[in-house]
Computed example of a mutant assay.
Amino acid sequence: MFQGVLQKMLTEWANPIRYYLPMENDFVLMNQLIGKDITLQLVGYHCMNCGLNKPIFRQGYCKECFFEVPQTADWVMHPELSKAHLNIEERDLAYEQQVQLQPHYVYLANSSDVKVGVTRKTQVPTRWIDQGAHEALVLAEVPNRYLAGVAEVALKAHMADKTNWRKMLTNQITPIDLLDVRNQVQPFVPAEVQPYLTAETPIWQIHFPVEKYPSQVRSLQLSQTPTYTGKLVGIKGQYLIFDDNTVFNVRGNEGTVVNLSII
């Protein structure tokens, strides 16, 4: 049995992607558990900032910490609100400068339908793996998060900027030519970002360790079902997929202390 505070699974580029779940004293290679029955049991909570056993509010933080730490400020979800390039602090200027003032990608990805997104250059291809995208390409490389956000805002008037997680997990994929989409949307990129468009960029093809996709999905909430046992049949994005159509969002349950047993 393993015990630990849930954090998002670490990934390793391979065909298929390899997933590692950090536990208290070890990393569990989750790919090896596919085909096996496992039990998840709720033990308690551990705020990713203060470390207290308090109910998790969002993103692994208790309510008090969520509204204080720089990792959850508005610019994280809305890059166009970034102000570090103006030397303006929102919660912690040193942290904001470190994260915002580095190269960012504006990208196109397909996890069910084409979407536009933003990520730090250092987070590729991790960001796409976490979203469950089976293909992606870089549209532009910009020097800071603000410019990436400006481009994203302009482009989401023409396409989605969110992943449809239900379609992603049931593998309902719309065939799309990302190169063609790139050529179609480039004129909509704001003038200040046009100089950063990438001329030649490869399409990343991503393969996930899934033996069987669910026909529909039922989301497991440990707060409502403290103990769950099921046969693991796949991993996609940050979701564990079980043979009874249950899916468990590991990243969405960060800060939850669990026991993981292999039957």
Score class of each variant (00 low, 15 high):
21 L>A: 05
59 Q>T: 12
59 Q>S: 13
44 G>S: 04
63 K>D: 15
135 E>V: 01
80 E>A: 07
59 Q>H: 15
80 E>T: 09
99 V>D: 03
63 K>N: 14
67 F>S: 12
69 V>R: 02
68 E>V: 08
49 N>W: 15
45 Y>Q: 10
83 K>I: 02
48 M>K: 14
124 V>M: 12
72 T>W: 05
151 A>R: 02
90 E>F: 09
46 H>R: 11
47 C>L: 04
156 K>H: 13
74 D>S: 13
47 C>P: 03
94 A>E: 15
141 E>P: 06
89 E>R: 00
38 I>G: 03
152 E>N: 01
25 N>Y: 14
21 L>F: 04
150 V>N: 05
150 V>G: 04
66 F>C: 03
147 L>Q: 10
83 K>P: 01
54 K>D: 11
86 L>M: 11
115 K>D: 01
136 A>P: 01
68 E>I: 08
48 M>R: 14
106 V>Q: 03
74 D>C: 05
147 L>T: 00
67 F>Y: 15
130 D>M: 04
58 R>L: 13
66 F>E: 02
117 G>W: 11
101 L>M: 12
50 C>Q: 05
122 T>C: 13
80 E>P: 02
115 K>Q: 09
30 M>G: 03
102 Q>C: 10
90 E>G: 00
32 Q>F: 07
58 R>F: 15
67 F>A: 10
148 A>S: 09
60 G>L: 09
57 F>T: 01
114 V>L: 07
84 A>W: 08
77 M>A: 13
123 Q>F: 15
112 S>L: 06
134 H>N: 11
27 F>P: 06
146 Y>R: 13
53 N>P: 09
84 A>L: 05
131 Q>G: 00
118 V>I: 13
155 L>K: 06
135 E>H: 12
127 R>V: 07
56 I>P: 06
68 E>D: 12
88 I>L: 09
29 L>E: 14
128 W>P: 00
61 Y>M: 01
134 H>M: 08
127 R>W: 13
140 A>L: 05
21 L>W: 07
67 F>T: 04
46 H>I: 00
35 G>Y: 08
46 H>Y: 13
119 T>S: 10
84 A>V: 02
121 K>P: 08
99 V>S: 00
81 L>Q: 10
126 T>P: 06
22 P>A: 00
156 K>M: 12
138 V>T: 08
103 P>D: 15
47 C>D: 07
144 N>Y: 11
52 L>E: 15
